[in-house]
Design a protein around this nucleic acid. Structure first.
Lengths: 338, 338
DNA sequence: CAGGGGGTTTATAACGTTGCAAGCCCGTGG
DNA sequence: CCACGGGCTTGCAACGTTATAAACCCCCTG
């Protein structure tokens, strides 16, 4: 007994292959009685269409590719986005593949590979830069995609982003309200678009509130945790530490908290820490710190929704989501997995 | 200009399609001069074989499916394994797809789907149970797979596992050496195979060393972090807390550390905590605790290696890896990503 | 010079699906 | 009675690849 195909089903029902195929697609040209007959025969016989054949014939893959760095992360970033994405896609017959890329090599490689081999119907990636060659390439080839993060050509493509400018503004307002005067902001790697958003907001809001906001070129959110830790220790020891650290990343925040404690100071009394929170990890960290939430689960869902609409042909101009920071953490609806 | 195919290449070189196809595969039946001619023509013209067509014709997909729960994780488990896996597969022309599954639904579903639709050439999954229906099904259908974790039929299929028994033994030896007398062990959900490994080792080693090792049915490693936290607080408040907690999971360990601190006790002086460490997060947690490492990156690589050999036809009996616990943490060779 | 036999190349036929154009049947209107 | 059209069904071809078997060519041997 080999796998049932359209042919099997055609023989079983006494219809032509073409009729069976169209009946299964609920084509209104096929009589309703026939459609039902075919459907029940298919169920009984256990027919499932062959994806490879459909793909060869139609050129559609029913696959969404999520391209991301293969780095091991201490705290799940991709995980939450994938969860939101796959939840959003449930019910459609798209499924996600995660394509890790080699950071040593050209970040274009996996994308070119996907486009040229038609490995997917649409593409999602993050870590966008103002002038992003991946975006250029995809626009040129007309391949559907959504970025997580904006670019200089954000008017022309679909994206979903977190309002990192507002995040910084909100955080600085809180710190100013607590009477802090000097704040050090850890910025993302300078080539990323949102480094700019954060810097602009920091300058603007700092001026408005009379806060001295500093940052470093040499140490960023992409730096190793121990570099961040050691930097903070040095600053405290040399007496030039700020009143507060603003950490838009969980791992850097943990490093800063550890460093402050290691110097014998208190996070609540001496130096404040405000973090961007993307998981519930800070519920388990003592001392508790102030956080502003970014909902990556929602971002994943949003990316999926936008991409489906883009694939369906909607113009990219309308497919743009800016997510606002949330004051309180909205936990996952399910149990944590260890 | 449409996409180049074998036909294009055949016309360009003046050879037959078949010849071109076989030349590209380095078939020794084709003259070396011809092979080289075809290869350079292919490079020049930018030919890439159509995956869908190859797949339809041969039935092979060049895809490895990694099936896992779509839960958002606080600390990356899948991430590290995926990193190891994809690093291992680099150079081969296999690529990984991560298939999330719906925990509400039957865990068999995604696997049946993959097998029946031939969505991959091989399968990896974890969370194995002693009598695992996924294993039964895959053995029955003859589909290549490797499990992360063992089953009762571990002699008959390929697997990679961490020696959780030895982990417990090692941890208890350390605690006994520090003079601890009572230990509470958090066990995994009871349906998982390694719950048994841990329990057996706990009983055996506890007896040998004269330690009282307890555990609970109601609270496991899969419990929510706050349940674990609250349990520990209750135990301490009611005066029935053990000398030490053994936490084979990072999130539970963080919960326990937080709970001990919240009760005003010290992790180093009053109650010891030994954790299983799978990331570098404990470098950033104060107070520092004692850990034993599980290298998930290596596990991912191992799973990939085993699966490739299984797909190549090697008998499953020889494809079994048991990883020993490591005393010291081996950090990733790359920068951390936030 | 016929008969083999390597070493190469080729024609043909699938794999399972769907788009296209055409077909059949029956009822209605001229 | 014929033409037309609507409702439904069908045959054919193609997507790009590879397995199979057959063909070709040239040289060597008897």
């Amino acid at each position: 007994m080999s796998k049932p195909t359209l042919k099997t089903l055609a023989e079983a029902t006494g219809l032509a292959q073409t009729t069976v195929s169209r009946a299964l697609k609920d084509d209104p040209k096929i009589a309703i009685a026939t459609r039902q007959r075919v459907a029940s025969a298919a169920r009984e016989i256990g027919y499932v269409p062959d994806r490879a054949a459909q793909r060869l014939r139609t050129g559609r893959t029913n696959v969404i590719a999520f391209v991301s760095s293969p780095h091991a992360e201490i705290i799940g970033f991709r995980g939450s986005m994938m969860a939101g994405l796959s939840e959003e896609l449930k019910g459609t017959d798209y499924h996600v593949t995660m394509t890790p890329y080699d950071t040593d090599a050209n970040p274009m490689r996996p994308i070119q590979n996907i486009v040229r081999n038609r490995l997917a119907d649409g593409l999602i990636f993050s870590g966008t830069q103002p002038r992003d060659q991946r975006v250029d390439y995809l626009l040129e080839t007309g391949f559907p995609f959504v970025t997580h993060g904006r670019t200089d050509m954000a008017g022309g493509h679909a994206w979903c982003d977190y309002d990192n400018g507002q995040f910084v503004e909100l955080a600085l307002e809180r710190l100013a309200g607590q009477g802090r005067r000097t704040v050090m902001l850890f910025r993302p790697a300078p080539d990323l678009t949102y480094a700019r958003h954060m810097t602009e907001a920091a300058v603007r809001t700092g001026t408005r509130l009379g806060l001295a906001v500093t940052h470093l070129r040499s140490v960023t959110l992409s730096s190793r945790a121990n570099e961040i830790h050691d930097l903070v220790v040095r600053q405290i020891r040399s007496g030039c530490a700020p009143d507060a650290y603003l950490c838009p990343g969980e791992v850097p925040a943990l490093a800063v908290i550890a460093a402050i404690g290691d110097c014998g100071l208190s996070v609540t009394d001496d130096i404040a820490v405000v973090a961007k929170q993307t998981s519930s990890v800070f519920d388990l960290i003592r001392p508790r710190i102030d956080t502003i939430h970014e909902d990556l689960h929602a971002a994943g869902a949003s990316l999926g929704r936008l991409l489906l609409r883009r694939i369906a042909g909607e113009p990219a101009e309308r497919l743009q989501d800016l997510h606002a920071p949330q004051e309180r953490f909205r936990p996952e609806r399910r149990k944590a997995v260890i």
